[in-house]
Design a protein around this nucleic acid. Structure first.
Length: 418
RNA sequence: GUGAGCGUAGCUCAAUCCGGUUAGAGCACUGGACUGUGGAUCCAGGGGUUGGGGGUUCAAUUCCCCUCGCUCACCCCA
């Protein structure tokens, strides 16, 4: 047993997992960039108040899931649990809204929540998110959802469903929660323990409950979508029409609820059908009041975040895990110790010419070195012995076919590069 | 935070139910058959505090308790 182990819920990404993570991340950000987004990099550490204010005091994230501590100056700080609030904070703090009315940012990085780990849920996890600030057009909402579709398409993820909903504007939501409480009346006692708590903290969540009694009761409760104001209704319709125009298939969810308080209006979730309990791979929505909440001028906004670990799980479930590719193109070998230095120098020269190469430092025989070459799946071995040195040539061996040729260095490089 | 299942070699697992000699196998690793040629084959070898601690017993990998860890689910969320 190792003396020092990873902290619970954290992961060591070792090759090839690290490479799969990075290449997936790169594919995603390339797609995002084609939509005009530019990267914003914000600190991992933030003031605790930023999140209590934006996500909501009574949400689980704030109440019990933040890695929080006091720094040496006595400041309450946290490892960021999500990405939207920091982006908005930077937008306000850096005065961006004064210079540019409409911006598209994307971010990527580690986020932290102190939860009990399970499939698709880590304490340190990786998200990529996009945020558009300064636009309230429903076409933009549709476009952001479309970007989500495009990302999954690029990754060849197919087995997902898109849930679309609206939580309404602040007024709608306040009014609806009141209506819900009245409608619930003294039937609150019939609800499960969790739902009793929910009626106080996030009543809309009652619709998500899996307990039979609660579901039965929920059927007779008023629907959120039926209680939207005209603006919110029209907005939703326009988003729907645009999605149809873009041939995006979605499912209208009457009670799609988000766990963060800042969402207003449109919300959406991409759920993967082969994943376990944590099956939301990409989700977001509109948050028109957050910028004001954080101290900026009224700025409507919309965005989403995707969970990289969950995307990776989805790829795995669909059998699309890329093959382990070790990039060694050429492996230099020396027949005896005398040729070690020439082989060493040859390796450096190959690298200078853009060829990924390596050699075996053990000083052992050729056989051992070829084994090493085989182990790193080298495409070619370049063998240097007394004879080769004398003739100023190298012996190029194709590791797949076993075929080998005596060539000049330049000829060998040409072939390796092909 | 709650619940269930599981911790045996680097990895995947067996032996645990019903306590009993030296805890086995495959893969991986090291060396040899083969001192200028890898993958295949054969032979040999190294590797274990059975997660940790305590208890019951003549005897514990096996039974009991505690603890740590992992996994999944609830909750929550990306």
């Amino acid at each position: 047993m190792a003396k020092y182990t990873r902290l619970r819920g954290t992961t060591d990404f070792i090759p090839p997992q690290s490479e799969i993570l990075r290449s997936t991340e790169n594919k995603i950000t390339e797609t995002i960039k084609t939509f005009g987004f530019r990267e914003i990099i914000t600190p991992t550490l933030e003031r605790k108040a930023l999140f209590t204010r934006s996500i909501g005091e009574t949400t689980d994230i704030v109440e019990k899931e933040m890695f929080s501590f006091k720094d040496k100056g006595g400041r309450e700080v946290v490892l960021r649990p999500e990405g939207t609030a920091p982006v908005v904070r930077a937008y306000v703090e850096e005065g961006i809204y004064g210079r540019q009315k409409f911006v598209r940012y994307f971010y990527r990085g580690s986020f932290f929540r102190y939860e009990k780990p399970q499939a698709g849920r880590e304490r340190e996890f990786h998200q990529i998110g996009v945020e558009v600030l300064g636009c309230r057009s429903p076409y933009l909402d549709a476009e952001i959802i479309y970007l989500g579709v495009k990302i999954l398409e690029t990754l060849a993820i197919k087995d997902f469903t898109l849930e679309l909903g609206s939580v309404g504007c602040l007024q709608d939501r306040k009014a609806f929660v009141e209506k819900l409480k009245v409608s619930l009346g003294n039937r609150v006692d019939l609800l499960c323990k969790d739902c009793k708590r929910r009626t106080e903290q996030n009543p809309l969540r009652i619709f998500d409950c899996k307990v039979k009694e609660c579901r039965k009761l929920a059927e007779h409760l008023p629907s959120l979508l039926d209680n939207l104001c005209n603006d919110c209704k029209n907005h939703l319709h326009k988003v729907e029409n645009t999605l149809k125009e873009l041939h995006v298939r979605y499912h209208l969810h009457p009670h799609l609820v988000r766990g963060l308080d800042y969402y207003t209006g449109i919300t959406f979730e991409f759920q993967h059908n082969l994943l376990g309990a944590q099956n939301t791979i990409l989700a977001g929505g509109r948050y028109d009041n957050l910028v004001e909440e954080i101290g900026g001028a009224y700025t409507p906004a919309c965005g989403f975040a995707l969970g990289l670990e969950r995307i990776l799980l989805a790829l795995k479930e669909e059998g699309k895990t890329p093959a382990d590719r070790n990039g060694i193109q050429a492996f230099a070998c020396y027949v005896s110790e005398k040729e070690f230095l020439p082989a060493f120098c040859l390796t450096q020269e190959l690298r200078k010419r853009g060829i990924t190469s390596d050699l075996d430092y053990s000083g052992k025989n050729l056989k051992h070195q070829l084994k090493s070459a085989n182990r790193v799946k080298a495409k070619y071995s370049v063998i240097l012995g007394e004879d080769e040195i004398k003739e100023g040539k190298v012996l190029l061996k194709n590791m797949d076919t076993g075929e080998q040729k005596l060539l000049s260095k330049e000829e060998a490089i040409e072939i390796i590069k092909q």
